[in-house]
């Protein structure tokens, strides 16, 4: 009995120590990435390439998901609002939920599983096949040459993707609400415009997506860089990237929402 308790406590302790240690290393890694960003900015072509592989290649999934999420919001929102006889508020409901929450959060979740996992797998494989070591042997710092451009490419892509997600979602809500069900088009847009504030809602949404982008990217990069250089190690790291960054997105979203919309 006493043994079991000690064992459990010891396991808890070692897990805590391990987690803290990893967080410390990840933070240091983040700092290193920022510190070595000079090369990336001197050679924008490197960042462009990463915007292509994280942003452009995630475009389809983001646009299609955004459209469908917006259409579902339009449908569900209409059903609910109809019972209170305020179908005109559909525009507000769709726009506010997308711009404040769903846009940044769902786009970031999709981004984590599409681009984040790809980043981890790519860096993990580069490590497993000694490409990073080879780079270092050629006196090229992998953090400056590989990690930092990926970081900035993803951080630039994320808010743009989130904005596209929200815009597509609002369009989807418009399609279902106005075109399909027949909510009055004028009140759909005007009520939306009256309720959505550029600074309070749109800007805060953008800030959220930037924060999520930084979090997802740094987790993905770190997991890849830290992965054991084996096939199994890389596949595990990829899974961990998706799980950890999804949790980080949701937790950060709560914190940010609490800070941003406190007064409203």
């Amino acid at each position: 009995m006493f043994d079991a308790i000690t064992r459990t406590l010891r396991r808890l302790g070692s897990r805590t120590v391990n987690t803290l240690w990893r967080m410390g290393v990840a933070t240091r890694f983040f700092g290193l990435t920022l510190l070595h960003s000079g090369t990336a900015f001197r050679r924008p072509q490197l960042i462009l390439k990463e915007i292509f592989s994280t942003g452009v290649l995630s475009l389809i999934i983001i646009v299609v998901s955004g459209l469908f999420v917006g259409m579902v919001l339009g449908l569900q929102g209409y059903q609910t609002l109809q019972t209170y006889g305020s179908e005109e508020a559909l525009g507000i409901l769709v726009a506010l939920s997308l711009v404040r929450e769903l846009g940044p959060v769902v786009a970031a979740l999709l981004f984590a599983s599409r681009a984040g996992s790809a980043i981890t797998a790519e860096i993990g494989l580069m490590k497993a096949t000694e490409q990073l070591a080879a780079m270092e042997m050629m006196a090229v710092d992998p953090v400056a040459r590989v990690v930092a451009p990926k970081f900035w490419g993803a951080v630039i892509s994320m808010p743009l993707l989130a904005a596209m997600f929200s815009a597509m979602g609002i369009f989807g809500g418009y399609l279902v609400g106005v075109v399909l069900i027949g909510v009055d088009e004028g009140s759909f847009w005007s009520q939306m415009q009256a309720a959505v504030d550029v600074r309070e809602d749109v800007m805060n949404g953008v800030i959220k997506s930037v924060v999520f982008g930084v979090a997802v990217t740094i987790i993905a990069l770190f997991e890849g860089y830290d992965a054991p250089p084996t096939a199994e190690g890389v596949s595990r790291a990829t899974t961990r990237t998706v799980v950890t960054s999804s949790l980080a997105i949701l937790a950060l979203d709560f914190v940010l929402t609490a800070i941003m919309f406190r007064g409203v």
């Binding site: 711009v99 904005a163 609002i170 959505v196 749109v202 953008v206």
Partner: peptide, 11 residues
Amino acid sequence: ALLFLAMKVGN
């Protein structure tokens, strides 16, 4: 998309 959110959706 950002401009759309700012101009058409927001005020």
